[in-house]
Amino acid sequence: MTRPPEFHIGLWQEETPPGTLSEVIDQVGRAVAQAHAAGVALLVFPECYLTGYYRPSPDVHGIARTVSQGHLTRLSQIADETGVAFVIGAYQVTAQGVANAAHVFLPGSSAPLTYHKRALYGDWEKSVFTSGTGPLIFDYGGRRFGVLICFDVEFPELVREAASLGADTVLVPTALMAPEDDVADFLVPARAIENGISVVYANRIGAEQELTFIGKSQICGPHSSSRIVAAAGFRGLLHAPLTTEAAPIDYVKEVVAQGIPRRETTILKG
């Protein structure tokens, strides 16, 4: 297998800053500039970083409508000015309703690539968001990336789908709240190891309404030795080179392509 070139990746562990959306975007610009200074090629922000994640308001559509084309254009300019790609989430109005979206801004692109969360978590998400319908896979910097959002990564099928489509890294904006530490401690690294890929998991900290977010953002490689984790109270930039060590991804793809071998199964009944 040809190893991809070294690629420095980062995540931003923080809460949505107070202020207007324009002020939040100014903060995003400063974060991306800091990532650029650290040599980061691609930066991942937490789930719904632009709008806030948990807004139990009857006017969710109104919040989503505050994200204008002008705001998206300004974010594209930040990518162009810094040369840093980044993934950032927001509420988004669609023909079907409001989606929980992750926008991918690539330097030199006129418009973002957009993924809509498919696995909606809990009664509140299901009541305010419409589910996405498909994956997002894109090539950048000699790597192939997939995008998932928070609860999506807890389903092995969705991560395996990205790996089967050639992704060597899955980017996951996240809003994992207490007391769900087991997801960060066990499931996220398992998704990287079982698929022979990297997983970049960017979580919130702080609180919104009654929810408290636990941090533990992490960059996981296909082996446990390549995992780095942000402390729960850490704020700001965590970054590392994506691993180039040998991984079982060719075998994983082969198994996916061929299907799991069928065997005769005997079910014993007591």
Rank of each mutant, 00 (worst) to 15 (best):
H116G: 01
S109P: 07
G62W: 13
F105V: 07
G70D: 06
D123L: 12
Q69P: 09
L50T: 03
A111Q: 14
G122K: 15
R65N: 15
S57Y: 11
Q77K: 08
F138P: 01
A90L: 01
I137C: 03
T94N: 01
Y115A: 05
L75E: 05
A41R: 13
Q92Y: 06
T82R: 05
V104F: 15
T73C: 03
T82V: 10
F105K: 05
E81V: 03
D80I: 10
A41V: 14
T130Y: 00
E81F: 11
G97I: 11
A95K: 08
G39D: 10
S109C: 05
I88V: 11
P46C: 08
Q92G: 03
D80W: 08
P58I: 07
Y140K: 04
F129Y: 12
V44W: 04
F86L: 02
P107W: 12
S127V: 10
R118D: 04
T130S: 00
A64F: 14
Y49K: 12
I88H: 01
A101Q: 05
G134T: 09
A99K: 13
I78L: 09
P135I: 04
R118I: 02
A119H: 04
A111H: 07
D139V: 05
R55C: 03
L72A: 01
L136W: 03
T133G: 11
V93Q: 06
G52F: 06
A64L: 10
H103P: 08
Y121H: 12
A101Y: 08
A85D: 00
G89V: 11
D80Y: 06
Y53M: 06
Q96G: 11
L75V: 12
L120Y: 04
G108N: 06
T82P: 09
T51A: 06
V104C: 00
L113D: 07
Q77N: 04
T114N: 02
S68D: 02
P107V: 06
A64G: 00
V60K: 13
A99D: 11
P46Q: 01
G141W: 00
L72E: 09
R55D: 05
D59L: 13
G70F: 10
Y54L: 02
V98C: 11
T130F: 06
T73L: 09
A79M: 03
T82L: 08
G70M: 14
S68W: 00
H116P: 06
F45G: 01
Y121T: 10
D123K: 07
D80V: 07
V104P: 10
S109T: 14
G97S: 08
I78Y: 10
H71I: 13
Q77F: 08
L120I: 00
G134W: 03
G132R: 05
R118Y: 03
S110P: 07
G39C: 09
H61P: 02
C48Q: 08
